[in-house]
Design a protein around this nucleic acid. Sequence first.
DNA 1: GGCGATTCGATGACATGTCAACCAAGACGC
DNA 2: GCGTCTTGGTTGACATGTCATCGAATCGCC
Lengths: 163, 163
Amino acid sequence: MEATRWLDEREDRAWRGYRRMRRLLDLELARELTQDASLSEPDYDVLSDLSETPQGRLRLSELADRMLWSRSRLSHHLTRMQQRGLVTREECPDDARGAIVVLTPAGRNAIEAAAPGHVTAVRQHFLDLLTPAEVEALGAFTHRVVDHLAQSRAPRPRRGRES
Amino acid sequence: MEATRWLDEREDRAWRGYRRMRRLLDLELARELTQDASLSEPDYDVLSDLSETPQGRLRLSELADRMLWSRSRLSHHLTRMQQRGLVTREECPDDARGAIVVLTPAGRNAIEAAAPGHVTAVRQHFLDLLTPAEVEALGAFTHRVVDHLAQSRAPRPRRGRES
DNA sequence: GGCGATTCGATGACATGTCAACCAAGACGC
DNA sequence: GCGTCTTGGTTGACATGTCATCGAATCGCC
């Protein structure tokens, strides 16, 4: 039970800035996305991940893993997107339990129409405000943090006895 | 209608890393908070902002502005927190429309019990993984981005004719 | 081949967040 | 003081996310 190491001034400034930036950036990007493309950020992410695959199709669980979403959340969200005609579900040939999420032509159109504006917004409100060195540093430390966090949530060894 | 400037490799790495880190960090911090202190992140933020004021009391709208929350969201959330005894509402003496949010002793206890663990988690999963230079850079560019975004959403001048 | 354990995805109940009214009260012009 | 406009906060309807549970299918092991 060590004494807590509180944040010093520099750390506090970084942590507050990070959270405030997140929030404002989210608000602005979401605002532009709905306005220009009638998509929410989650919609955009789903479509974006799907469109990055050669066929625009992914196993539901695979998509959920990539997005770090629960299967439940994705299933609910897909139901809504399906009603809007952006994606469909197909049966999985090699696993009868499985579902394959498929990008519809309308979904493809939607993401292709939305992407330029979204990327532009990301630049305008974020990346272009950073120096190349800062972008480089951001890439470096975020991946470091991601790797660290991926450890903690790594699937437990099957018969492990770890605490 | 310029051609879209897509992200180059470095930018893409930074942007993906940022979003992935956000998500994983949120999951982990929220997990530890609920487990150790039975608080959600929004709960923690409300209590934290309140406890930073000398009296543990803030006008509702003032709190909403600080948190970048809508009044509606805050009002709903306060209702729930009030039912758990973490905060109360009082009438505002100088503005009969107003409500003052007040930290209860239980709320004070909750944040004081939660803070050490939370700060430790923030260090462990984030800040301590960064070099001092990276922390410094993070503070610098996040504040730059925040200032930029604050511009776009600045309250419009009362009778302005601005585009 | 068969049985228990696990995985996949869907679903319903519930928690949380958003949006558009709404009411009451202050602010302003007169 | 009195109409009108704005502001502060609440509320209800609805969208979204979480959690526990379920049925069906697959896996592992014998």
